[in-house]
Design a protein around this nucleic acid. Structure first.
Lengths: 198, 198, 198, 198
DNA sequence: GATGAATGAGCGTTCATTCAT
DNA sequence: AATGAATGAACGCTCATTCAT
């Protein structure tokens, strides 16, 4: 899933540098503008020619996939670790959303890709988050701090939409945090009407 | 704000008919495909030529603006009326979201435009909803069924968030209704932690 | 098969002119350089922009197909007529090759397309020539001026390869006419060894 | 004409090996796909890097030229020998074509290059065949089994024509042998109309 | 000397907008 | 006033050749 340099024949130093530069530039540009960017802009920002870019990534989608894989992997890793080191289930769940929105939700392409999980075939890089969310959900429900009829899917979708919200208010941390608070409080309501069946 | 015929020199009857046809077709197409549609498709579906379309709307954005104005106006009107005829403040608020999501959230361009309210210069057509939301909020807070620190802006952004949810799950009513329930329950929590300041 | 203006809604005069200009330029360029030309060159030589070219012909292949259809249709038509007005079967056959090579074989793309008949799926525009050849063959064999075991397919292939030969010697009429003479004489040998079975 | 190592400063053993590997791979690939191949494929199949390839052959054309030189030399050599060991002039001539078509005509690049002999500056490697053909022609005409007005040039061009036939029908031996038979019979016609003057 | 990564002009194609008819 | 044809910059991608390692 991930194309880490360590898993392939080591590249020449300059090639490695270029590959890294491309990924870095692409990550930046994709974060800023989403997946609809011109490949030329990525090439220019990396300081490489088109050919070099296409040597490392045979299609635009490959580049996109690589960047997103990295982002999601890093994201899921950090989330996993945070969850494992937080004892209180409620704090763990809230911390997860807080961290996810504060760090990843500014990346337009990541959020786009994550949103695509619900329409059409899910880009499998996005699946990394499910186990983490599933664990958080189970712990919170066991502890009675999360309504019992909430599913992992609900939590995942909530993440997707709140991520989008973060993009909408681009940078106004205080604004989206209020939405998060409302949602989290809603998740903690145990005696309300049951969630409709999907 | 609105480019209604009433505010300009009256058009010839056929011009008026064309204008209406363009708006109708554009509304349809923009609902289905969002604002990224090819202008040609709008022209074709309206049965007019490109020149006619561009005579009425000098820019794709002008057409978009006009269509969205109409949609938001109609939407806000219906919402206003629903709010006025519903006595129970909680029902009024919940009914507003339910109706909004069930009817308008399927309109891709409307949701896109509404989301843009928070980033960059707000397309002012979207402001029509504010008075309605403001009223709903005030009534609900007065009745003690809505947390006191929620602002109209929060409710407006929640609408954007949930609208996006509807788009993501494209038509799976059961799925987004669960998110709506969670959010509404969150809004009703009176004794939770205060919303962060924005 | 053929996209003659007469078979569609009449185009505006200027569009018709442009369409004709494109076809003419394409015919020229394709004749000179074969099917591997840059579409931009065709557009430039026609004096139209890329968009215009692609409005008339949605893909390069469509343009190619249209040009080749026209060429093959004209070719087959002339050949048919020549065959019908020549009484002597031998003269008819020889006249066919003579005319085909003298007029069409200079068109690189036509010859390429015709050659493709034998490898892969035959571009159906090339099929127009078969009935003509079949008739010529039958008449010549009935008259005893063509070896009995020659098939229409043999004659078609001979045409393809002699066309290629004409391209090879680009313009040296006298040179390819000698090859044609040899082939025609070979076709007239009635008492030689039988043709191998294919 | 030929870039044989013997005519230059002797190369290091490994360089020699690389050169040979490149030529071998190129020969294979050019035979299969013609001169339009990607240079990368040749490099890959030879197991050398692009730099090495370009060190030995400064241009794709240089490599092509070298490969074709070798092919034509080998071809002409074999043909020469076959001609010398066949007593019957007719058999010698027919054997030449039969062998040429059965062995060399499957080599796409060879046939392409041979065809270029007639248009533009003749790649002189192809001239090697002339003496052989000239000899075959003289013997056959002396023996009265070949029409008197056929020139060596005619025979050479006939070879190009028939080679192309083999390519068109890609491997269908039975099909091109029929064309060969027709041509050979045409060459044997002594009382037909004279060949046109070129 | 060998390697293979880097280059960049060029390919087929699209679409918001303009303008001749 | 209406039409729809024309425009051309921009897109994703390829490949002969060069040059840093």
């Amino acid at each position: 899933m991930v194309t880490e340099p360590s898993s392939r024949r080591p590249l020449r130093a300059d090639a490695e540098r270029n590959r890294a530069a491309i990924i870095e530039a692409a990550t930046e540009v994709l974060a800023e503008q989403g997946s609809a960017v011109d490949v030329r802009e990525i090439a220019q920002r990396s300081g490489v020619g088109m050919g070099t870019l296409y040597r490392h990534f045979p299609t635009k989608d490959d580049l996109l996939g690589t960047v997103l894989d990295r982002e999601f992997t890093a994201w899921a890793g950090a989330a996993r670790q945070a969850a494992d080191t937080t004892d209180d289930p409620r704090d763990a769940l809230e911390g997860f959303y807080e961290h996810a929105l504060a760090t990843q939700a500014y990346h337009r392409a990541v959020v786009e890709a994550y949103g695509d999980t619900w329409s059409g075939p899910a880009p499998d890089c996005t699946r990394l988050l499910y186990p983490v969310l599933d664990d958080l959900r189970a712990r919170a429900q066991d502890a009675g701090v999360l309504r019992a009829d909430v599913t992992t899917g609900d939590l995942a979708l909530l993440l997707a939409t709140l991520s989008h919200t973060v993009q909408l208010v681009a940078g106004s941390t205080g604004v989206w945090r209020r939405q998060l608070r409302i949602a989290l409080d809603g998740l903690g309501v145990l005696d309300g009407p049951p969630l409709p069946t999907s």
